[in-house]
Design a binder for these strands. Structure first.
Lengths: 336, 336
DNA sequence: AGGCATCCTGGCATCGTTAACATCGCCGGT
DNA sequence: ACCGGCGATGTTAACGATGCCAGGATGCCT
């Protein structure tokens, strides 16, 4: 019949190697009790036929897909994009595939849809880039015991989390500006339902308090350059602003743009610090002092943790890795 | 007898609804010859048990996964990130899941690995964000007839492609600068093995030729702000440069940075145009005139095309959608 | 009343793999 | 020489869906 064109199956390999299909399966799964000689013969046959095991059949019986899901908020942002890339890279090395779903508004319904979609693809586990409080709460409604690792999520005892020390990052930024002699530091924060935004606000406030400086009112943006611009217009209206810490580089860019339009020079009149260290930051005018986050490391550690949980779900995994951020000083900050 | 905790199977639904498993299958696959009343009863039972069909079993017999693969170069870049997001969104709406793999160096081996990985996840088809000539050539070696759609790829009769009209985009940028009265336009191109880079060079050259302007030597970058900076230093060394068209916004940023450092003002001394319209571009100093590419539309059309091919592989699909770019004029360009 | 379509049942084969169990030699101990 | 044990293999039964088929019940048309 039309035998030739078909994709070869285990039985074909077995026949060619002169063994039973079970032996082929044993070779494939590195089981013991196969003689070296037989193994070799099977491997040759597999190569010769260009055999690839059928993932459906395998999954049907093992109930494992060797695929993980990644749920991510806006992938166009530098952070999530970098993290996803790192996860995929690490996953491939560990023999896992990666399915992605995006979330748009981080509502409970939205997140349920996303989890549903991953579940339909029978992933073995999920990594969530879950930046808001609501997102983490929605994860409470996850389906039958799918292992989950969250990145940058609020602490909960039962939820493995990998995160960057946002509080410390904000402290570095604020401290740097104070060390340059600024009387106080203004802050343009991210959306108040994002954990990262909140922790940066906390770090900023605590550092000011430690130094016994007054705490100016908080300005709130939404991570976009435009919202930074709006905040910048606000700041330009006051003449006592000499130092601004923006919760990400895009907002810092907007702030600088607004200040420049109002005739305030950066850094001569106002020093500005960002957060993230996106690749463009070094080439802003002026080059942006910022706090670098190692998004790749977050992705790698997140995947490692998930894989360990999958390989060994018996033992509890209590680590909650935290990564230290790093201050990158450039031209946008200067002593008063 | 640990019956309760198990994930329900089709038979459980059938029993609860008082029908045969065959009828449940018909409901699930929207086959005809099921009375409305029975269908309703089955659906209620499915909901009640929270039944989800087993994708492995289904795939084993249908040999379809309802999952597509996306192969993408650097996802941290704005373009690929946006496109991936649009693909995933459209795919979910069409009932498909998305598996991603990244490519790092676009070598033949690298691309083979990536395709291999997708194949192991038994995707039904692949969308390739295949920006280099080498990448497209490597696709010649694809496995047994997996349908492929390429984005921004070189034309080949057998390869469905969706792309943005790069030539036209470069023409818009160059024309805009000439219309402002500039004697000629310098160009900082992308890597010479990228199709997009080549077409932009072509568009730039053709527009200059049409206007009978001299063509300055081409400067070549690698899309990064740093390479734009290097090119900018070069340009700042000459005093006859009044207009620069950079092949993406990041390089334009680098160019502006270098010019500013050399004391050349943008746009008073030199006008600069970018390409892409990344969200930051509007807030660069000065706001960047650029050519907007609709990456979302590329993703959507690419997915549509692939799904049509999957649903109806019999007929040939000869469309090669092309999307028009759009010039966005901001503050970085001005008449001489 | 007969013919025919519609709706459904229920059994059985099938997809390609893994897991549990059976078998068959061979070796060493007594 | 017999027997227990184990290493190497083969045999058979799942896994959970889809697809095919024969057939029964019902209703409508002629």
């Amino acid at each position: 019949m039309t035998k030739a064109a078909q994709r070869p199956v285990m039985h074909d390999v077995a026949r060619l190697a002169g063994v039973s299909h079970q032996t082929v399966s044993r070779v494939l799964n590195a089981h013991p009790h196969v003689s070296a000689e037989t193994r070799e013969r099977v491997i040759v046959a597999m190569r010769q036929l260009n055999y690839r095991p059928n993932a459906f059949a395998r999954g049907l019986v093992t109930n494992r897909s060797r695929r993980i899901g990644v749920m991510s908020f806006d992938r166009r942002m530098f952070g999530p994009g970098s993290t996803l890339r790192a996860i995929e890279h690490a996953a491939r090395a560990a023999g896992y595939g990666v399915a992605v779903v995006g979330t748009t508004d981080l509502s409970v319904g939205d997140i349920n849809d996303a989890v549903e979609s991953l579940d339909a693809q029978s992933v073995d586990g999920i990594i969530v880039i879950a930046p808001t409080q609501a997102a983490v709460r929605a994860l409470g409604t996850l389906p039958r015991g799918l292992p989950i690792v969250a990145l940058e999520a609020e602490y909960r005892p039962e939820l493995p989390v990998v995160s960057i020390d946002q509080f410390e990052g904000a402290r570095l930024a604020t401290r740097h500006l104070l060390d340059l002699g600024h009387e106080t530091v203004w802050h343009v924060g991210g959306p108040s339902d994002w954990r990262e935004a909140l922790l940066r606000v906390d770090g900023w406030r605590a550092t000011l308090a430690d130094a016994s400086k007054r705490t100016p009112p908080l300005l709130e943006g939404n991570w976009s350059p435009r919202s930074g611009y709006a905040a910048g217009l606000e700041l330009a209206r006051r003449d006592d602003v000499t130092a601004v810490f923006a919760a990400n580089d895009q907002m810092a860019l907007g702030v600088i743009h607004a200040l420049a339009q109002a005739g305030r020079r950066v850094p001569e009149d106002v020093s500005v610090v960002g957060f993230d260290d996106i690749p463009e930051a070094e080439f802003f005018l002026p080059g942006l002092t910022t706090v670098r986050q190692d998004f790749d490391e977050v992705g790698r550690l997140g995947l490692d943790l998930l894989v360990r949980i999958l390989d060994d779900s018996a033992t509890e995994h209590r680590e909650r890795p935290t990564i230290a951020p790093q201050l990158i000083v450039r031209a946008s900050t200067t002593p008063v």
